[in-house]
Write a protein that binds this DNA or RNA. Structure first.
Length: 553
RNA sequence: UGCCUGAUAGUAUAAGGGUAGUACAACUGUUUUUGGUACAGUUUGUCUUGGUUCGAAUCCAGGUCGGGCAACCA
């Protein structure tokens, strides 16, 4: 039982319960409301719930918390299932709180019969007023003293559709003076003449979260019901319902939700970004949604690894976005195919190279000896990156400049002989010479150069559109920044490069996973690609020590 | 001026009365046909005041600061 990695507080609880014989095995659940797409915060919960079951030999249910028909849709159910599966998890049962509507109705009736629930005719404003404030006790109203029989009939009439929305509610009769606001006779059923995505028009009353969640856990025999910190004040009510209904005692445990710098983690705000067209959709690669990250090229393994690294605790946290990027790079460095793409071209002519084409071999991934090689056409006229040449080079600049030599990756060492300019003095091309005996793999030149550049043969290059993403927000702590969160949107979060020049392998053999454009970063083919136009999303840049050096100067 | 929570490097997370450790970030080097990777190293920390103890991040008491709670949302 003593592993190297220390346990988080929930794992400790589970191990204690198991070793005390409280449970033979554990059952957890992931309970999203189908009113939006899943985001990286949900991934933390998914990894926790499913991870616990895997680690301790239990099971996990996927349960849709669909008790509010006005916000929920089947589209969301489908996306949630896709995202959980993509993350690499399989649920034991696909369930819905709406499966239990009849059972929940019976539970409510039982409470009424025990004198623990009553129908209240007050308006929502009246109920709010009577509730008091955190420092002022609430007051009881006349409806609280209705008889059991009267309540049974009224509740039955509510179900039968005799009342309009808001006319009546069912409340638990607990304590209007409780220091916990949630215990001041919480509403447990409301009237909503709305179409439900699963039960259709069968119901016009719907249970509130507090009367559905715990009971659903209990019905499923969930042993450990894990949720976020804001539900701590609900726990006494969760336990109250289970106790007064005498049903299976599921237990609720709370952990701190995930926050990441420069991003938002709220379904409501994410929906706003989509509706107000600040992004192109739920799966926009800049979004913190699972689908956005998938489209961006983040591997599921990286997201799981990230969730493992951030840990589980009760303290509020704000995780550096760079940790997520680290996880992505760490995985992709090992698995991504290497390719060459020139973003901003500068033509070079190798004056002493014949008018022929040579196919040079280049490794697909130096980190993976099983990844093999590919060939790249090499010719007299090439493109290199404009950034990789400076007419007047500063100290420690290892790239090309007049009279200097560099290696072209997997090809030859070249020397810049002259700079060709147009009438206004713009550099139009470079004339270089190559060292024939410096060919990669059979270099006998004895020359050592500091810089290695990526390149493409102009005649063979194919066109590609590159979409480069940056953080969506400009402030670290978006949720707590002053003003509206939309004031902090980064106006440059997307830069599109319409004409990049890619090596032919990218077209003849399009990669399905993210690949590395050497010296540029990791990129993945986007679904917007067509047979004639490749479109790539930048997943993440490479670390760039030179950029840092330049910044310092 | 209520109730509930929490506080360990810049950010997270361990140490459960006995060496404050790990990861990311930052910074130095070494290696390198990616200024990538890999490797080696450096910097930075127990909110505060008392108490118990041979010994406290850990136990006790007070304070300070942060978060949550008054939706017919979840």
């Amino acid at each position: 039982m003593s592993e190297e990695k220390s346990l988080n507080f929930i794992e400790e609880i589970v191990e204690a319960d198991l070793s005390a014989g409280k449970y033979q095995s554990i059952l957890t659940r992931f309970p999203p409301e189908p009113n939006g797409y899943l985001h990286i915060g949900h991934a933390k919960s998914i990894c926790l719930n499913f991870g616990l079951a895997i680690k301790y030999g239990g099971k996990t249910n996927l349960r849709f918390d669909d008790t509010n028909p006005s916000t929920e849709e089947t589209e969301y159910v489908e996306s949630i299932k896709e995202d959980v599966r993509w993350l690499g998890f399989e649920w034991a049962n696909e369930l819905y709180a709406s499966n239990y509507f009849e059972q929940l109705y019976q539970f409510a009736t039982q409470l009424i019969e025990k004198g623990l629930a009553y129908v209240d005719d007050s308006s929502s404003e009246e109920i709010a007023t009577q509730k008091g404030t955190p420092t002022l006790a609430g007051t009881e109203n006349q409806y609280r003293h209705r008889t059991v029989q009267e309540n049974i009939e009224l509740f039955s009439d509510m179900r039968a559709g005799k009342y309009k929305d808001g006319e009546k509610v069912l409340r638990a009769k607990i304590d209007m003076a409780s220091s916990n606001m949630h215990m001041r006779d919480p509403i447990i059923y409301r009237i909503k003449h709305a179409h439900h995505h699963r039960t259709g028009d069968a119901w016009c009353i719907y249970p509130m979260y507090d009367f559905a969640h715990g009971q659903s856990d209990s019905i499923e025999n969930i042993t450990h019901s894990i949720c976020t910190l804001e539900f701590i004040p609900h726990r006494p009510l969760y336990d109250w319902c289970i106790e007064n209904l005498s049903i299976f005692p599921s237990k609720q445990y709370e952990f701190a939700r995930l926050n990441i710098t420069y991003t938002i983690m709220s379904k409501r705000k994410l929906l706003q970004l989509v509706n107000e067209k600040h992004v192109f959709g739920w799966d926009d690669p800049r979004m913190s949604t699972i689908s956005g990250m998938r489209r961006r090229g983040y591997p599921a393994e990286s997201i799981r690894d990230f969730c493992e690294k951030i840990g589980v605790a009760k303290r509020e946290n704000l995780i550096d976005f760079s940790l997520l990027e680290f996880c992505v790079r760490e995985k992709l460095n090992k698995s991504a195919l290497r390719r060459m793409v020139v973003f901003d071209p500068l033509k070079i002519v190798i004056t002493n190279y014949p008018n022929t084409v040579e196919f040079l071999e280049s490794e697909n991934n130096p980190e993976d000896s099983n990844s093999g090689t590919r060939t790249m056409p090499f010719s007299k006229e090439l493109f290199i990156e404009k950034d990789d040449f400076m007419e007047v080079a500063p100290k420690k600049y290892f790239r090309l400049s007049p009279g200097q030599m560099v290696r072209l990756k997997s090809a030859y060492i070249i020397k810049c002989e002259s700079v060709i300019k147009d009438a206004v003095g713009n550099i139009t091309e470079l004339h270089c010479t190559y060292i024939p005996e410096s060919k990669s793999g059979s270099d006998t030149s004895g020359i050592n150069v500091k810089g290695t550049l990526h390149w493409v043969s102009i005649a063979h290059a194919i066109n590609a559109e590159i979409r480069m993403y940056d953080r969506l927000f400009q402030v670290e702590d978006v949720a707590n920044a002053a003003g509206d969160f939309k004031d902090h949107i980064n106006p440059n979060s997307l830069q599109v490069l319409a004409n990049a020049y890619a090596e032919p392998a990218l077209q003849t053999d399009p990669p399905t996973d993210a690949c590395q454009f050497i010296r540029k970063g990791y990129f993945i083919l986007d679904k917007d690609s067509t047979s004639t136009q490749l479109v790539f999303n930048r997943t993440v840049t490479l670390k760039d020590a030179w950029a840092k050096e330049v910044k310092k100067a």
